[in-house]
Amino acid sequence: MEPSEIEKLAKLARLHIKPEEAAEVAKRIGNVLALMDQLQATNTDAVTPMAHPLDAVQRLRADLVTEPNQREAFMAIAPATENGLYLVPKVID
């Protein structure tokens, strides 16, 4: 992993990685990737891709409204609210 790739990943994941840490992080991610390479080397031609380790299928629920309005409780633990809205640092496209 190049330091520039680490920087990009950190940005996407909203992680703050100091420049002096970049080399160490690159080494650790490199180890994980090496393990991936080892897995990649296995011949999987005859193996069906697996989406989930449990040998089960999703159970579906009936279309019913079961959740009451608990806005007051949720707002009570939010850092900032106004007029029923959660407030966050300004974002604009």
């Binding site: 629920r61 019913l64 806005r71």
Partner: peptide, 19 residues
């Protein structure tokens, strides 16, 4: 009537964050 992964209502026009 309800959301794809929860039992909250999907009705349009409700007070913000009540659903």
């Amino acid at each position: 009537k309800s959301k794809i992964f929860s039992g909250s209502s999907t009705a349009f026009g409700a007070e913000p964050n009540t659903q």
